[in-house]
Design a protein around this nucleic acid. Sequence first.
DNA 1: AAATGTTGCGGAACCGGTTCCGCAACATGA
DNA 2: TCATGTTGCGGAACCGGTTCCGCAACATTT
Lengths: 329, 329
Amino acid sequence: MKQVTIRDIAEIAGVAKSTVSRYLNGGSVGKATREKIDRVIRETNYEPNQFAQSLKSKQTKMIGVIVPRLDSYAASRTMMGIDELLTEVGYQMLVVNTAQQTEREIEQLYNLAKQKVAGIIWLGTTVTKRHLEAISTIQIPVLLIGQQHDDVHSLVYPDHEAAYALGTQFTEWGHRNVVYVGVYESDIAVGQDRRDGFLKAFQESGAHVRVIQTTFKIEDAIPIGEQLASEAGSISLIVCATDNIALGVLKGLANRDISVPKDVSVSGFGGYDFTEVFHPSITTVQLPHRKTGEMAANMILQLLQGDTVAMKTFTNFELKVRESVDNIK
Amino acid sequence: MKQVTIRDIAEIAGVAKSTVSRYLNGGSVGKATREKIDRVIRETNYEPNQFAQSLKSKQTKMIGVIVPRLDSYAASRTMMGIDELLTEVGYQMLVVNTAQQTEREIEQLYNLAKQKVAGIIWLGTTVTKRHLEAISTIQIPVLLIGQQHDDVHSLVYPDHEAAYALGTQFTEWGHRNVVYVGVYESDIAVGQDRRDGFLKAFQESGAHVRVIQTTFKIEDAIPIGEQLASEAGSISLIVCATDNIALGVLKGLANRDISVPKDVSVSGFGGYDFTEVFHPSITTVQLPHRKTGEMAANMILQLLQGDTVAMKTFTNFELKVRESVDNIK
DNA sequence: AAATGTTGCGGAACCGGTTCCGCAACATGA
DNA sequence: TCATGTTGCGGAACCGGTTCCGCAACATTT
């Protein structure tokens, strides 16, 4: 199974290497030679060596995707969307994982550049000066998903707006004593925007909100649910920054035999599949992760072509009103 | 930001390209020149061009991973394990998605070979002659996860054994009227082994089992749950081939106000995170997906070194006895 | 018919590494 | 002291493509 090279083709067809190359890349080739080469290539199953091509062109048909975790629902869905679109147009996705370490994001930016990916899609959590520095030195189009920054093309979820919409709905339903379970502020989109959207809605209605901070892990949210169980009489609603946190809180409440939504309401954020099949089904905001992946792939391709792309694009969202939050008015 | 080449280094250091190359690859280089080159490389931040290297060596530091779906819990966890170990030893993971199409598995086998990956880890569903043909022609070590075949190195979950163990437990608890909700047989491990393990246990105890077939999708399992709700009096246990199916069935039962495990018991298979936090928590078998990924990475590396590796390796499993299945004896 | 433009094609250089070969300088053994 | 390793290093070829340049054959214009 030796690799067939362009020289082999040239020899068999009785032409020069350069002619074969021209044939492959759409240069001017006469009809007769075209047919000859065509036949030889077909017969030999010739496939150009990608390393030789990239060595010369300093480019690949790869788009790097930097993800904080491989096993997050949001990241998986987004990757699906990206992959689907990219394969359609003959590009490949190169996923690199940072295991939630900011330092590795920066490393990977440089690393992907070294591998000459055509573009980078970055599912970010924080944007620092060092990130920006990396992005500007590597000279490769970068598209940021999920966070925003004026100096980077970004595709963002309307976290603030969606949280505000959901919060407003809850206040209309009469919730006045609320606990918000959020995450650390270093994640701008989730830790700040999402929280602030909720707070704005509740403040406008004069509701009382207590903020609790946790992590993205389900386990860490369970004790919070257990603890809040004792206050089920005085609070009417627990708003969680992600569906996973909601899951943990619900578990904690169930451990203490608190019934949702009868004793207390609980909401999530994100729109993970299981929120619908959970019992009770969970009221949440659905974010279009998969479609966002497709959009991102499209945008990076446009950037590659040199088209101008809006620096900031918002995706849409959808309120999923389900069983876990009661209208108590 | 021009790329620094080995020639630049050679020129600045006043030596030949070949000497620099020897320095980089541990050939014989004198102390004085060694230091000179060392300094120049450090100062220029020189990084070898990977395409030029691969062009010559016909090899990369990449391991291809073929997955049927990007958003499956099992696949994600396995990928995490693979990635973690590979980055430790300086390899990279190249994930390719087949979107559950067998044809694309074969395509990707060839495609990855074209990209000169050092090895391939394949999360398989079916093994056909065409797969075997591909594997043998590409001449690259392949490690199959989740399915088994005598001609391919495989790392498999003890589906039959685990299902048998779980089934035996259930019969000991007195379940005699059982429905098994499985998937299509083309997936050998899940569709056949898992089912047969259960059936063996139930048959040994003389229990009556009805088999229903569905897909891997949660949505498809919901109507099954709804339909089985009407038989809650006559059946005591619904065994599901995967945790996702269990989720759907539970939803269907809840839609019909059937209480689990009071009216009927339900079990899953796989050990997904959410089975623990679901209410009621779901009795299932925990498969070590992440660790399996690490093992797979280790094994493929051994194959690369030419070490001999067992053709078939079984992972372990753990029964997770939780709330969703009652002891009715 | 001569001048000019087009088109098709081969040759050679180049991308940035690795490796083989051979030579010189030095160290070792007889 | 001479013959025989050993070590360090430079030169050149090679991996498999792409692209620039120039030449010849043919077509077009005046």
